[in-house]
């Protein structure tokens, strides 16, 4: 059964913009992205919206729907009350390009600063061997589709533009954690996680976890374990002494990768 959906869609660019009212005929079973596409097809051909897979796998269609960061292609219209107005805005943490499209390049710049995987040398037969229990843990983090909804919702940068200089954000704490937990990796990124990625800025209020469309337990399984590793490295006198006395954990301290550009 089709019906008419009331929508408010933010239209504009960096110089200004506003919420514009639309009434769109929609069908049962459709998602917010369908409604946006119908606006584009029938009412405002110039509505800018980014999308790609329409299957929740490419991470392109991140927007804010009724104030909540969500994937437009995975937000069913049936989640709203009949007659409820659905408001769609661009992500409010990144610079707006036009309409619903934002410039998420901050995230790519941060990505370049995470020291890459540094595996130990291959054994004589040239084959790496890893146990299932050791690789399992990082698998959860690899589900990330880079929608950057977690980056968008994180109040550290959402509410404080200046922190973008010193804070990597939840998506990259996942990356740090994944590498730190990798059975073959030889780098120690704990000092960097603190000094460069600014993990101490996170106050574990868990919004990243709340919005992740992949259901990754970002805070519990990546950020807090990384914070605990940073404590081992920088704040706990006992683990510090242990390191000195038993010469444990003598891994290479990772360096910030040299990125050619800029």
């Amino acid at each position: 059964m089709g019906y008419d959906l009331k929508m408010k869609v933010w239209r504009g660019d960096a110089t200004g913009g506003d919420l514009v009212d639309y009434t769109v005929p929609v069908e049962e079973g459709e998602v917010v992205l369908d409604a946006l596409h119908r606006i584009q097809a029938t009412q405002s051909g110039d509505l800018a919206v980014r999308w790609n897979c329409k299957a929740g796998k490419c991470g392109s269609c991140s927007t804010e729907i009724n104030g909540k960061p969500r994937l437009a292609c995975m937000t069913r219209l049936s989640t709203f009350e009949e007659g409820e107005t659905v408001t769609v805005t661009p992500l409010r943490t990144f610079p707006v390009v036009r309409d619903l499209v934002t410039d998420v390049s901050y995230n790519y710049k941060v990505a370049e600063t995470v020291p890459a995987f540094a595996p130990e040398p291959r054994p004589a037969d040239g084959q790496y061997r890893m146990q299932q229990v050791d690789v399992e843990r990082g698998q959860e983090f690899r589900k990330c589709i880079e929608c950057f909804l977690c980056q968008n919702v994180c109040h550290v940068i959402r509410d404080h533009e200046e922190n973008k200089q010193s804070f990597s954000g939840p998506r990259f704490f996942l990356r740090y954690a994944e590498l730190e937990m990798h059975p073959l990796d030889t780098n120690d990124r704990r000092a960097l996680a603190r000094e460069q990625a600014g993990i101490g800025m996170c106050n574990i209020t868990k919004c990243c976890t709340e919005v992740c469309p992949e259901g990754i337990h970002i805070t519990d399984n990546a950020i807090i374990p990384m914070k605990e590793r940073v404590v081992d490295r920088s704040f706990d006198p006992v683990t510090w002494l242990g390191r000195k006395i038993f010469r444990r954990d003598q891994l290479e301290e990772a360096q910030v990768p040299q990125t050619g550009a800029e």
């Binding site: 960061p69 919702v153 109040h155 919004c207």
Partner: peptide, 15 residues
């Protein structure tokens, strides 16, 4: 709450 702006001007977290 998530995506509700906080009232503080500056923020340094737990650093």
């Amino acid at each position: 709450a998530c995506s509700v702006a906080e009232p503080h001007r500056r923020y340094t977290g737990e650093t």
